[in-house]
Amino acid sequence: MADKTILVIDDDIDLVEIIRVTLENQGYRVIDAQNGERGLELARDQAPDLILLDVMMGTIDEGFQVAYQLRSDAGTRDIPILMLTAVGDQTGFAFDPGKDQDFLPVDEFLEKPVSPRRLVDLVRKHLPTSI
């Protein structure tokens, strides 16, 4: 378990720190990126075991663009993605995560505010256990 690396892609530095402290406390290694471009780089170079991705960074759907690119690259295709979303976003109005999940390239949505307990539960659920 100590070897598992989790990549957090989010431009909210404070939230990244909260997630880092929570996950490191559980024995995971956490790396982070503040934008999608850097996140894609890290995903390719470091081959993390799971990615936490914020839906809305610079643009309204930057998170989705990143997710699609991760899925289209053979090297990162199989990494589980948890997507962080905020309730009541304009995006929340345009799509309904519950219904459109099948068409989206992410494994699960995690609504903000991120509850540490739920975060840990979901990370455990989606981490590959085969190793």
């Binding site: 909260i18 309730v87 976003d89 307990r117």
Partner: peptide, 16 residues
């Protein structure tokens, strides 16, 4: 929305 959500996560993480 974001500041409140992050503050909430921070306090919950601290409690945890």
């Amino acid at each position: 929305k974001s500041p409140v959500a992050t503050a909430q996560s921070a306090v919950e993480a601290a409690l945890e």
